[in-house]
Computed example of a mutant assay.
Amino acid sequence: MFTPQGPTLRELAVQALSSTMRGYDLLAPKFDRTPYRTPDRVLDAVEGTVRPLGPFARGLDVCCGTGAGVGVLRRLCGERVTGVDFSAGMLAVAQAGQGPTPVPGDGPAVDYVRADARALPFAPVFDLALSLGAFGHFLPRERPGLFGQVHASLRPGGRFVFPVGAPPAVGSRAYWSLFGFDAAMRLRNALWHPRFVMYYRTFPLPAVVGDLVRTGFEVRLLPMEDLGRRPDGSPRARLVVATRR
């Protein structure tokens, strides 16, 4: 699963026994060499699905990590892009340019802010907010507050977008893999402190859409056609487009 330049088993074990924030601080220098970084084909599919919804001036990458989403926003936004994350280590990698290759030529200004996504320090100035691969770090009871913070950071009519993959078939290898991972994390958090919050099966789309609507968003689901369709014809992934009323 990992390249020779990626984290060792010992490094992953130390990360897994740390808090969520400390774990990502430790993993940050090698994060982009792990499968945890959002794949380029997903980044391209997100960009291609979002672009027709523009134009956009100011973009916000929520839980930006090493900056994969910032790269997408730099190609979509014309004025300024902000990445926000609670991990100083991940932000340091993003700022050092060890994440995605910067867009050639002139582009929007980019800045990074260290903050918890549950307490965003922004006025409602963003046209577009994006988040990639971070929702497993929030418990279901935290979702409404998280969505409320993003809502408050968007101007009226601003959009909050994120991809959601189709759930694996019950009984499939992927199903049992995710089930086993979540079970192991629950056991770890019951027996060991500080907690490392990361779950794959706590973000069901119907509940997520309900929380967004109650927060004050209008929600559309767009198929991400570049990622293909399943044998039954349904898309392998959808883009959630939540618009601030």
Rank of each mutant, 00 (worst) to 15 (best):
Arg74Lys: 11
Arg33Glu: 11
Ala57Cys: 04
Val161Arg: 02
Leu130Asp: 04
Asp85Gln: 00
Pro124His: 02
Gly107Phe: 06
Arg201Lys: 13
Val213His: 04
Leu132Trp: 04
Ala119Val: 14
Leu53Pro: 00
Thr202Lys: 00
Thr82Glu: 03
Gly210Phe: 13
Phe160Ala: 02
Arg51Pro: 03
Pro124Asp: 04
Gly233Phe: 14
Pro144Ser: 08
Leu53Lys: 00
Pro140Cys: 00
Gly59Ala: 07
Ser177Ala: 13
Val150Cys: 08
Thr20Ser: 14
Arg220Gly: 13
Phe138Glu: 00
Thr243Met: 06
Pro156Ile: 06
Phe162Gln: 02
Pro121Arg: 14
Ala169Glu: 12
Thr20Phe: 03
Tyr24Ala: 14
Phe138Asn: 01
Gly133Met: 03
Lys30Asn: 11
Leu27Phe: 13
Leu91Ala: 02
Ala183Gln: 10
Thr49Asp: 07
Cys77Asn: 07
Arg214His: 11
Ser172Trp: 10
Glu225Met: 05
Gly136Ser: 02
Arg22Cys: 04
Arg74Thr: 09
Leu212Gln: 04
Ala190Gly: 15
Pro4His: 12
Pro100Asn: 13
Phe135Asp: 00
Val70Leu: 10
Leu17Asp: 09
Val240Met: 14
Ser19Arg: 00
Ala129Thr: 09
Thr34Glu: 12
Val161Asn: 04
Ala68Tyr: 01
Ala96Met: 09
Met198Lys: 10
Asp44Gly: 06
Phe179His: 09
Thr215Trp: 01
Ala92Asn: 07
Ala242Met: 10
Val240Trp: 01
Pro168Lys: 00
Met1Trp: 11
Leu212Pro: 00
Leu73Cys: 08
Phe135Met: 10
Leu191Met: 15
Arg58Phe: 15
Phe179Asn: 01
Pro168Arg: 01
Leu120Thr: 02
Val72Gly: 09
Arg220Pro: 04
Ala190Asn: 12
Cys77Tyr: 05
Cys64Gly: 02
Ser234Val: 06
Pro235Ser: 14
Arg245Thr: 09
Val46Phe: 05
Phe135Leu: 14
Leu73Gly: 02
Gly180Ser: 15
Leu227Lys: 00
Pro140Gln: 02
Ala88Cys: 10
Pro108Asp: 13
Leu132Gly: 01
Leu222Val: 15
Arg75His: 09
Thr215Phe: 05
Ala16Cys: 03
Ala16His: 02
